[in-house]
Structure formats: C-alpha cells, structure tokens
Amino acid sequence: MNEILSSQTFLLTLTLAVYLGSMWLYKKVRFALLHPLIVSMGVLILFLKLSGIPYDLFMKQIQIIDFMLGLSVVALGYLLHEQISQIKGNVIAIVTAIVTGSAVGILSVALIARAMGAEQAVIASLEPKSVTTAIALNVSAQSGGIPALTAVVVILVGIFGGVAGPFILKKIGVESKIAKGLAMGAAAHAMGTARAMQLGAVEGAISGLAIGLMGIATAILVPIIARLL
C-alpha cells in the first residue's frame, strides 16, 4: 500500500487534486484563511505526516511541477515583451519605486520587530519578506536569518497581498495600471503577480518585472540596512 501512496503517479494526482479542490472551495466561500495555497499546504502536510512519506521523496516525485514553474517564468517574460512599450517611458519611475519600496519594506519590518523585542535572527528572517521564495531564503541565510521562518513569512505575505492588494489599491485611489502592477509584484511577489494578471495584461507584465527588480534591490539593500541599524 505504501508503495502505491509514494508512487509518482499517485502523488502528482493527489497534489493537483488537492489544489483544484482548494480552488473550488475558495471560490465558493471567498474566505482569506481558506486561500488555496494555505489549504493545499495543510492537506498535503497532514497526508505526509499520516502516511510517513518523507518530504524529500515527495518533492522528488512531483519535481515535474517545479519544471512547469520554470516555464511559467518564461511565460511572464513573453508577457513583459508584449508590454515593452509601457516600460520604455517609465524606466526611472519604475526603478525609483522599486528601490524605495524595497528600502521601506526592509526598514519598517526591521524597526517594528526590534521595537517588539525580536532577536536579530528573527529580524533577519523577516527582512526579505516581499521577494520570491528562492531569493528570500538565500538573503535570509546570508544575513543570519532562519530560512524556514522566512519561507513561511514570504508565503503569508504573498497570500495577503494577493487577496487584499487590489482592494487596498482601489480604496486609496490608485488607477494607474503600471502602479498597480508594481505594487502587487513588489509587495506580494508571485502571488501578487498571479492576482495582477487577473486585473489585466499590463498589470501582470509590470508585476512580473517587479518581482525580479525587487529581488535584486532587496539582496543589495538588506546587508546595507543591517549595517546601518
């Protein structure tokens, strides 16, 4: 029985079925805490615990999903190429917004965490909260953070930004498609970009660009700000 449960076919089918089921549930209830990513993680973690299947084996069996994620990045590049005209006249504004957003994001979370008495390792873990997981984990490790904590925070920030971002932008009167895309990608990385693509092609393309630029800016600014603080 355990051989069947740990087979590639079963684990791939289970993973996709859990995610599709989570999507269906979220569309029905529209409750933020039942976001597909949260529900999927919870169900799969519970399954691995009960079945005794090692996480490393699970990841090996579903590695094709990782491969497909790589293709999705290429798709974002194509979308960005289609919207290149939207970028050409706004390069300075985009770069300024990303650098400012990165600095404010790092400083705010560091100062708040320090004021609440958090240890330096926790602060270092929180600083790269707004960039995609691969970059955030590396930045966290290099600055003395706890990568596992960083991964959880990045996921939660992405979910919150993806769910609440459009509502907040609407409430504060942001109408520019470029501004919306930058805000979603810079604050909520991949989850924000997925939501931005639902808003429109321009928003999705700019949000995809913001993920990369935000990663670069954060990797550069975290050690600099850490020294200053």
Rank of each mutant, 00 (worst) to 15 (best):
A186M: 13
M184N: 07
S176K: 09
K170F: 03
A194I: 12
T193G: 03
L182E: 00
G200R: 04
A179G: 05
T193S: 09
A201C: 05
L182G: 00
Q198F: 01
K170Y: 09
G185H: 02
K170V: 11
I172T: 12
I172R: 15
G185P: 04
T193C: 10
R195Y: 00
G173W: 06
A194D: 01
H189T: 08
A186F: 10
E175M: 08
E175A: 12
K170E: 13
H189A: 11
G181K: 04
R195I: 03
A201E: 11
Q198T: 14
A187D: 07
A196M: 02
S176T: 14
A196K: 02
M184P: 00
A187Y: 01
K171D: 09
K171G: 14
I178F: 07
A201M: 11
A196P: 07
A190L: 07
I178T: 05
K180S: 08
V174L: 13
G200D: 09
K177S: 14
A190R: 01
K170I: 13
M197A: 13
K171C: 01
A190V: 12
A187E: 01
I172N: 14
A194V: 15
G200A: 07
K171T: 14
K177M: 15
A201W: 01
G192R: 00
R195F: 03
S176G: 11
K171N: 14
Q198S: 12
S176E: 07
A196S: 08
K180Q: 13
E175Y: 10
H189Y: 07
A188S: 15
G173Y: 03
K177C: 06
L199V: 14
A194T: 14
I178L: 14
K170H: 13
M184Q: 04
R195Q: 10
G185F: 08
A201N: 13
K180T: 06
A201Q: 12
G181F: 05
A183V: 06
A183H: 01
A194L: 12
A187N: 04
K171L: 15
A201I: 06
A194S: 13
G173E: 10
S176C: 12
L199Q: 10
A179C: 07
G200H: 09
L182S: 04
